[in-house]
């Protein structure tokens, strides 16, 4: 028995060490990025490499911001898009998820399967028709192609919210219906307040998605004034030789930072949210 216990303890220690090593490996690129972002350029090209810059160059950050062009404008555009798309997604997905979970109507589950099937369509496949559709609407070179679709409920978000809505007891709505509540009031006053954590998760996902989106802005935006951070960063690194590593890393750090901040602020919801995406259906 004591041998078994010792073995178990040893194994746990080994796993712990393994995890430590993995954690270090996963953190290394971040550390490398920050370290590079604080070095002068010639120190980035030094062999053997050093983890700690000889002299910390905070001004790399201000210079990177300048080199990227209108960094603050890009940040503003990105943020603006994020907020609108989050609002649109929350509203439309919650409505659709409600229709797919809290109201019994004929053919509902079949239609829902259809919704899930749309998740299978890869974006590159419908890229050209989307483009020609927005072209016909005269929206090329505006933000509209990037935020209007958010108001039409993406299948993934509907799925997540529906999973959550299903867990709310049916009696709740039944009681309200008997009291003569309209569906929209049940939705707004009973279900939505209960679904706050799920809404938060969907909002977070959408925020991340918009913040990270690259192909959309690449196709639809024509004016440099309208660039998002992702597009601005790619533009910057495709100019010249793309080897101003200290600036590139500083700029990357700045683009990543808000996302990480948001993650740390809402970590629990976030991880739970990701975990539910894999829930069996």
């Amino acid at each position: 028995m004591s041998v078994a216990r010792r073995n178990r303890r040893l194994r746990r220690a080994a796993v712990w060490l393994g995890l430590c090593l993995c954690a270090l490996l996963f953190l290394a690129p971040f550390a490398w990025m920050v370290s590079t972002s604080l070095k002068p350029l010639d120190e980035t090209m030094l062999l053997p490499m050093k983890w700690f810059p000889g002299k910390i160059q905070w001004h790399n950050y201000t210079e990177a911001i300048e080199a990227m062009g209108d960094f603050w404008l890009y940040a503003w555009n990105t943020f603006y898009l994020c907020v609108i798309t989050v609002a649109g997604t929350l509203l439309s997905s919650a409505l659709a998820a409600y229709g797919f979970s809290r109201i019994e109507w004929r053919g509902r589950d079949k239609v829902f399967l259809l919704a899930l099937a749309t998740m299978m369509i890869p974006f590159p496949v419908i890229m050209v028709p989307h483009y020609s559709l927005f072209k016909a609407l005269g929206w090329i070179g505006t933000f509209k192609p990037l935020w209007v679709p958010a108001f039409f409920a993406g299948a993934f978000n509907v799925f997540l919210l529906r999973q959550f809505f299903m867990t709310i007891p049916k009696d709740l709505s039944e009681a309200a219906r008997i009291d003569g509540c309209s569906e929209i009031r049940i939705f707004w006053q009973i279900i939505l307040p209960l679904a706050k954590p799920a809404l938060l998760v969907v909002g977070l996902f959408q925020f991340m998605y918009t913040w990270n989106d690259f192909l959309g802005p690449l196709i639809y935006l024509t004016d440099n004034k309208d660039f998002t951070l992702a597009l601005g960063l790619q533009e910057y690194q495709s100019q010249g030789g793309g080897t101003e590593w200290h600036y590139l890393m500083a700029a990357s750090t700045l683009v990543i930072l808000p996302v990480l901040a948001l993650f740390f602020a809402t970590q629990r919801y976030f991880i739970e949210g990701v975990a539910t995406t894999g829930a069996k259906n």
């Binding site: 300048e66 990227m68 209108d70 960094f71 603050w72 404008l73 503003w76 100019q239």
Partner: peptide
């Protein structure tokens, strides 16, 4: 053609 793209940030209130 874009080797250095140094411009003054626009719209101060926004930034």
């Amino acid at each position: 053609y874009q080797y250095s793209n140094r411009r003054v940030p626009g719209r101060i209130h926004v930034s």
